[in-house]
Design a protein around this nucleic acid. Sequence first.
DNA 1: AGTAATTTGGTACGGTTGTGCCAGATTACT
DNA 2: AGTAATCTGGCACAACCGTACCAAATTACT
Lengths: 195, 195
Amino acid sequence: MTAATPKGERRRQALVEAAAGLLVDGGFDAVRHRAVAERAGLPLASTTYYFDSLDELVTAALEFHGRAELEYGKARLDELDPGECGGEAFIDLVLDLLLGPPAGDRDAEAVLLRYERLVATGRRPYLRPLMRKLSGELHGLLLDIFTRAGQPVGRERVEELIALVDGAVVNALIEISPDPRAAARRMLAKAMQPR
Amino acid sequence: MTAATPKGERRRQALVEAAAGLLVDGGFDAVRHRAVAERAGLPLASTTYYFDSLDELVTAALEFHGRAELEYGKARLDELDPGECGGEAFIDLVLDLLLGPPAGDRDAEAVLLRYERLVATGRRPYLRPLMRKLSGELHGLLLDIFTRAGQPVGRERVEELIALVDGAVVNALIEISPDPRAAARRMLAKAMQPR
DNA sequence: AGTAATTTGGTACGGTTGTGCCAGATTACT
DNA sequence: AGTAATCTGGCACAACCGTACCAAATTACT
């Protein structure tokens, strides 16, 4: 259901943000009615009042988070130095867009979460339209970045690089001390060096 | 706990196989005490008698399934025609090893499961040693296959191709009608064609 | 044959889950 | 001001879950 009063709208938004936070911290399984309510400082019933089902709440949370990430990506794009084209910094930028900003010693978990979301989409068909939309915008962003870096590439090449990064990440997850970002960086650097 | 009597050993094995079946059909979340017991035609308590915890049962199921898959891979390797080296059939073979044998109209779900397993390992550190072992054997198998096909490659190249396939799969999962195997085949064919 | 170890299976407990219910408080509208 | 719509929040329910318990049955061993 959608809120009809200003205060109601604020409450609804608080729930969405709380749900998004839980999504980032603990994955889809962490987004529960009670957990969301507690995190937002609201009663349990408010979650079922503003959202007809848990799926609806999860969708709203994913959209909120996805939008925020795209905003971050666009900001990074705007401050891109056109001189930079193939150096370490450029690779790190692409990684930031695909894996999110580095999260220090929690980085492996943060990256893991992104791929849990991706894979979980397979079991939650209702998320696919949203995921496709977000993913499409991300692809476009990457195209822009390569172009602005004076290294224009085609759509196919972008998809190939994304696949390389994603594959490197999921394969790194089974290491004893996983460092998916480092694994992805190695792959990406190797694929982008001129031959 | 480990069984000490022949009949007990048979029962324990039945539980493992039931759990593996559930794992394949519905992912980790489907492996529950009650579901396993019902599928094996055994009482609930038998699951807690032979396995100290659910994690132990999941581990046994994963190992059982992983071994079966490696057996399948080795069999495919043995019947490989040394003449075949870069054709469609060869690509399909590599895909079969990485994604399992094609499962018809249930293929997308079967493939999805493989990646749920991979990602779920991130949240279940106790599975990492086993996953590493299975993954290592699979890498070795692929090395053998490329060698036998008269197209020897290095370990790094194998890792790159695997990453490409894995990345193509996870990105295909968000399509409206996902066909991850086809997406992976496209990527693989492009990467393996001589330049 | 008889004792000990193992296995069986029904049952119960405490916890968490999504969701429905509803009397009362708050807000919007005429 | 007064009626209607909206919102609030405490509570309960039924369905799961992992796991513990334990008397009875079965099997292994001397």
